[in-house]
Each structure stands twice: as C-alpha cells, then as structure tokens.
C-alpha cells in the first residue's frame, strides 16, 4: 500500500522528519503516537502533499507510484485521503458541489465518465448516515459555522464519499467529546476493508479503543522509535512518553 523509507522533511529550513520508515499493507490500521512536536502532523501533511514541507531525502511509494513527485490533487486521485486536524472553513463553496467536483475530477483522472447526478445524490444520502451528518450540513458551505465535532464528521463523510485506499486521520479525536468520538470512530470502522488501510495519528489512546489498530508506532524526534501491537498504546497511556524518550536518547548515544 504505502512504503516510506528514510523520509526526511523540513519546514522553513527546519528538519522535522529525520529518517522515518513505515510500511503499511492493504487492510492494516497503523496508529502513530508520540509526544508534542515529534513530527506526527508533519508526517500527515507531507504525505498529503502540503507544499510548505520539503522532502529532502528518502522515498515514499504509494500503490507502486513515487508519491513525492505527485501533486496534492494527484495523490488524492491515486486514493490517498487526509482527514485534517483543523478542517478549513470555506465560505461560499458548497460542500456538495465541491465533493461532486472532487469525485468527477478523480473519475476523470481514472478515465471514467462523470458521476450520474442521481447516483451522486444517493451516495450522499447513504454516506451521511455513516457519520450521522445532518443533511443540512452537507448542503452548506464547506465547514462554515460547523461545530468542532461537525467538522470532524464532515471529514469522515468526505472520506466515505471519495472512497480512498489509504485514509490518514490527523488527530481526528482532538476537540471531540465522547459521543462525537464514537460516531466518528464508527464511521471509520465501517470504512475498514481488506483493500483499505489507515494511518491514525493521535495523541491519546482513547481513539484507539474505538479504532483498533494492528500496529502502534511511537514517533519521537522525527523517527519511529518503537513499534508494537495495540497494547503498546495502553502502555503509553499509563507510563507517558518519558521512558520512550530516554530509551531513544540512550540508543542514539
């Protein structure tokens, strides 16, 4: 699915990712945890193609393609989806029209005809239910005036509409109360399939109670310093990150 080798990336000349390796196979869910400033969100942004980030070394292969060379839109068209930590409000751009354009541009990229309008509306109806998104919200401007929880649900709704092969959730749990968290996680779980993988970036173990990962990685200082089964998340919740930090520092020495 995606293979990240020795990835180095900087923003404004400052190196954030310092040789990151990660291999995700179809159907797997990988959680990326780590203390503040370790590079979690940078990883998500770099994979999605945000231009502020410069990849200085390493390679990322996504479904056989060199991801780094693709524009942000082509990455999405190849099946990568980033659920934003802070979804942007875009006044005046209708959620539905924007999604229709996105779907049709993705279809065009794949050599398919535009989606049938009726089929599109049926899809909207179906996917809204997945995250219990109010029909009114789907028709409003993108995220405008949405609550924090609604914005996150809208992210998952969009993911459901675009049907990516790799979903990257960037701190999707931040700012969510427990009910909203459950709804969002349920939405994600319903999208799990043997062909679809997820990278779940999170600060807290809480989300992983709902979206159970196959692997948990600890990102620290721009590298993955520890990988374990889902129980690792519980251990981190209990013991914090300090023991990881000192282990990593000892290893570096």
């Amino acid at each position: 699915m995606i293979s990240i080798k020795n990835l180095h990336a900087s923003v404004e000349g400052k190196e954030i990712l310092k040789g990151l390796n990660l291999e995700v196979k179809p159907g797997e869910v990988h959680a990326i945890m780590g203390p503040n400033g370790s590079g979690k969100s940078t990883l998500a942004s770099v994979l999605a193609g945000r231009e502020d980030y410069e990849v200085t070394e390493g390679e990322v292969t996504f479904n056989g393609k060199n991801l780094i060379e693709l524009s942000a839109e082509d990455r999405a068209r190849e099946g990568l989806f980033l659920a934003f930590q802070y979804p942007i409000e875009i006044p005046g751009v209708s959620n539905i029209n924007f999604l229709k354009t996105a779907i049709n541009e993705i279809r065009e990229y794949k050599g398919l005809d535009p989606i049938d309008p009726k089929q599109f509306l049926a899809l909207v109806k179906e996917k809204q239910k997945l995250v219990e998104l109010d029909g009114k919200l789907a028709n409003r401007s993108v995220n405008e005036g949405f609550s924090g929880g609604e914005k996150k649900r809208n992210e998952i709704f969009q993911m459901a509409m675009l049907e990516p092969t790799l979903g990257i959730l960037d701190e999707t749990d931040s700012g969510l109360d427990i009910d909203a968290l459950r709804i969002v996680a349920n939405g994600v779980n319903k999208l799990r399939s043997p062909e679809r993988s997820f990278i779940v970036v999170t600060h807290y173990q809480r989300l992983l109670d709902y979206i159970v990962p196959d692997y948990v990685h600890v990102l620290y200082n721009g590298r993955i310093v520890k990988t374990g089964p889902k129980e690792l998340a519980l251990e981190l919740e209990e013991k914090g990150y300090d023991w990881i930090k000192s282990d990593a520092q000892n290893a570096a020495v």
């Binding site: 231009e51 942000a72 999405a76």
Partner: peptide, 30 residues
C-alpha cells in the same frame, strides 16, 4: 487566495485550476 483553502480542496482531488476558480467564485458570489 487563501493557501490553506487551496490545499484543502486539492487534497480532496480538486485540481489547482478548479480549486482556484471555486474560491474566486465563492469570493465574488458574496
């Protein structure tokens, strides 16, 4: 044009030209 909004749209598969047009239209539409 708001770079963050541009990236958001592009990250959903909307090409740069369409994304730009969408944002400019939204701006003018007000």
């Amino acid at each position: 044009l708001d770079e963050d909004a541009m990236f958001y749209l592009r990250a959903r598969g909307v090409g740069e030209a369409s994304a730009r047009k969408m944002l400019v239209r939204a701006f003018a539409e007000e």
